[in-house]
Design a protein around this nucleic acid. Structure first.
Length: 502
RNA sequence: CGCGGGGUGGAGCAGUCUGGUCAGCUCGGAUGGCUCAUAACCAUCAGGUCGUAGGUUCGAAUCCUACCCCCGCAACCA
């Protein structure tokens, strides 16, 4: 069985609703986890929510709720999203759990040698209860637009984590690949960023400015800021430090993160681990952002796409298909309903769904549904394995479709329906037909095998139809990607130039 | 000269590290074929000076130089 594997996802801040970006992270992690499990590994797969901080406290207050009640209500949205995507996670952590809070305080204490008190000076807005950067202050002429008050020069006491002390070790780990960052251009980007060294990071706030958070041990006036609290989740969820078993899983094999949080996961987080004398994660898998029609999604534009809608309208595998194949796994991608529907109807419906249907139909029609010994598919699996190994799921999907298209061509070439007609006259035709159909079934079963981590329920359906020796009618497994035209015109509709039927 | 990514037929992309076998794939379009199938599938065609200008080379989308344009990042939105 080998070493037990561990994969993590970023824990989203729960003051909003889940969007495609979150969904993408879960999906990528789930594909990896399922792939490993398919290959006999034992996998632990963490997800969770980040629930502390001012924004949450403020939002809760706005709604007349306690922060705890608010997060209790909000985290469920994310849990639902994960389930809906089919993410087979093993652990769900909330940063407000007592065990986590206690563990983080332990971590703080253990990091004492690297924590020092310093003061931070900056532009503060009383209305926001927050600091603003020089640039922002300059841009507004020194007056907060929201509150019509001048920013004040304020200094406050904070604790700092001496991440700078670990610069060399971290750089070394990255360049040697002990902590791999994929894709490579992200690695280079980060190395460039820290060429002058890591900067120490502020890890606490005065209680008066941040009430909803984990108290700093031994200093009642200070509360922990996001870093130690949130990043620690990757180990506290395993039981660190007091519950047995976490060592079997740490270091993580893969940590899935978005490109925006690479700097924290490649800088602050490793510094924490080094301070705790724990090994660094083996790999940071950095995915990109999903644009909509080439435009960045944003709340102000209101152009966000709801993953729930996609799944409700087309099914979870259609969702998994588009986002694993048409969004480059390690780079930015683009979503439009037109692209999505196109991929659904052409690739899932016409290429794969129809192929399954035609093979099943021929076996039923020519062999009364009886399947002979299907030989193993003979498509070269190496490119697929390589792609999965390199975390290029979109490339793996291309490989699978190569098989699908290949089988359609093969069928077209050998024309089983013509062989069937010759059976009366030609005694060899019967056997030949059997070979052809068995070959086809074998290829489909191989496709199903490859699809297992990517489109689990589709893979399951294909196996159910063909694996038992007798064809199981497609209808009984729910059909494979029937045509759907919700967001574009149905090309099969009668072409009425201008005559609406009444 | 802040850092990074990219500019390839109507659209979306691969190929660039390891120069020639690269001008390729999918969608869209046209024509034809087939009838097992989800009005599907298969074949063929339409031609893009591979951002621009130089250079290296027997030969460059692929290497070098300069320039133009687009997009991210530079701030706790994945």
């Amino acid at each position: 069985m080998g070493k037990k594997l561990y994969i993590t996802t970023a824990i989203p801040y729960v003051n909003g609703t889940p969007h495609i970006g979150h969904a993408l992270g879960y999906l990528l992690a789930d594909i990896w986890a399922r792939y490993q499990k398919q290959n006999g590994k034992e996998v632990r797969f963490q997800v969770g929510t980040d629930e502390h901080g001012n924004k949450i406290a403020a939002k809760a207050a706005e709604l007349g709720m306690t922060p705890k009640d608010y997060t209790d209500k909000m985290y469920g949205n994310f849990e639902m999203m994960m389930k809906k995507i089919g993410a087979q996670y093993t652990d769900f952590i909330r940063t407000t759990e007592p065990h986590h809070e206690g563990a983080v305080q332990y971590i703080w204490q253990k990091l004492q040698p690297y924590i020092y008190k310093g003061s931070y000076e900056g532009w503060y807005c009383v209305g926001h209860e927050a600091f603003f950067t020089d640039k922002e202050v300059e841009a507004t002429g020194g007056i907060c637009e929201d509150h019509q008050k001048p920013y004040e020069r304020v200094s406050e006491e904070n604790y700092y984590l001496k991440t700078s002390a670990f610069t060399d070790q971290i750089r070394e780990a990255i360049t040697t690949g002990h902590m791999e960052i994929v894709p490579e251009f992200r690695k280079n980007e980060f190395l460039e960023l820290i060429k002058d060294g890591l900067q120490d990071v502020s890890i606490s706030r005065p209680r008066k400015n941040l009430s909803w958070g984990i108290p700093v041990p031994g200093d009642p006036d200070q509360v922990m800021y996001v870093w130690l609290d949130a990043l620690s989740n990757y180990i506290t969820v395993l039981g660190y430090p007091d519950r047995a078993g976490w060592e079997e899983y740490w270091p993580a094999d893969v940590q899935v993160i978005g490109k925006d949080i690479l700097r924290f996961h490649a800088g602050i987080w490793p510094a924490m681990l080094l301070g705790l004398e724990l090994p660094l994660p083996k790999k940071l898998m950095v995915h990109g952002f999903i644009n909509v029609g080439g435009v960045k999604q944003s709340k102000s534009l209101g152009n966000g796409v709801d993953p729930n809608q996609i799944i409700d309208e087309y099914g979870v595998d259609a969702f998994r298909y588009f986002f694993s194949r048409h969004i480059p796994t390690l780079d930015d991608g683009d979503f439009t309903w037109e692209k999505f529907e196109n991929a659904y109807n052409n690739e899932l419906g016409n290429d794969l769904g129809n192929l399954v249907s035609r093979v099943a139909s021929m076996v039923s029609r020519y062999q009364s549904g009886v399947i002979g010994d299907a030989p193993k598919g003979d498509h070269d699996m190496k490119p697929y394995y390589d792609a999965m190994h390199d975390l290029k799921f979109n490339v793996a999907m291309e490989e699978i479709w190569d098989s699908v298209r290949g089988l359609n061509k093969y069928i077209e070439m050998v024309k089983p329906w013509e062989i069937a007609k010759r059976r009366e006259a030609d005694p060899e035709a019967e056997a030949h037909l059997g070979e052809v159909l068995n070959q086809s079934v074998g290829t489909l079963l191989q496709v199903a095998e490859q699809l297992t981590p990517l489109l689990p329920s589709t893979a399951e359906s294909i196996k159910r139809i063909f694996a038992s020796g007798v064809i199981v009618p497609i209808e009984t497994v729910g059909g494979l990607f029937p045509k759907v035209y919700l967001h574009s015109e149905d090309p099969r509709a009668p072409k009425t130039a201008s005559a609406p039927e009444k």
